[in-house]
């Protein structure tokens, strides 16, 4: 394909690397940006450049942040005694968007995966231990994925928390809200039955 200019070709390739974008979409984006939307193109280029230079991991929770501490860790109104452990920044955002949680977070940037060689060092468990060691945390909420790897991660961190005498809790799993039992897969149903709650008076 030598019919396009090499720079145009490179730009299409650059967009093609992004998740969920194929050749067609990449071409659409490129032509959109070049056809009289140069301000948007410049904005995109500058923001990407800026973020790569200034975004780092928060010193406390490992969330992406422009400063040493992220907005959540800086916020003194947030409950310092609650720490929620998540696997990724996307998980943190999903929880944060519920506006139900007022504690702080710790982002593992992955989960325990022995076969991929991902263990405590890769998840920076030492950094988490430093938080535990501050003696401000009463409860660690383990919001890792409900997968075998996520469970293993949760169990491991719970055991670490135990050594600091910190209570560890695990987010519940079961039938999705608004779902119908009939259509829930059997594996989830088993978990829902095993983790059932008491309702009403005992």
């Amino acid at each position: 394909m030598k019919k396009f200019s090499p720079i145009l070709q490179d730009l299409i390739e650059a967009f093609k690397q992004l998740p969920g974008i194929g050749v067609k979409s990449a071409q659409r984006i490129v032509f959109y940006l070049l056809q009289g939307n140069t301000d948007k193109a410049l904005f995109l280029a500058e923001t990407i450049q800026n973020s790569l230079v200034s975004i780092q991991e928060c010193k406390i929770c490992r969330m992406y942040s422009e400063e040493e501490l992220c907005e959540i860790c800086k916020d003194t109104k947030r409950d310092q005694s609650l720490l929620c452990i998540v696997e990724s920044p996307a998980d943190l955002m999903a929880l944060e968007n519920t506006m139900q949680f007022n504690g702080r977070y710790f982002v593992l940037m992955g989960h325990l995966s022995p076969i991929d060689g991902i263990g405590p060092d890769e998840l920076k468990i030492n950094q988490l231990k430093e938080l535990f060691d501050l003696n401000t945390i009463n409860e660690v909420i383990l919001a890792t994925s409900p997968t075998v790897d996520g469970e293993a991660t949760a169990a491991y961190i719970a055991s670490v928390a135990g050594k600091f005498d910190i209570k560890a809790t695990r987010i519940a799993y079961g039938v999705p809200f608004g779902g119908e039992i009939e259509y829930v897969d059997s594996n989830t149903l088993i978990q829902a039955m095993l983790n059932r709650n008491t309702i009403g008076k005992q």
Binding site: L112, P114, G117, I118, G119, P120, I125, K129, Y156, S159
Partner: peptide, 17 residues
């Protein structure tokens, strides 16, 4: 074996608190 490496890292962590 990567799982052995992780196993050892966990044991090391366990030892150090």
């Amino acid at each position: 074996l990567k799982s052995k490496k992780v196993f050892k890292a966990i044991e090391r962590q366990d030892g150090s608190k």
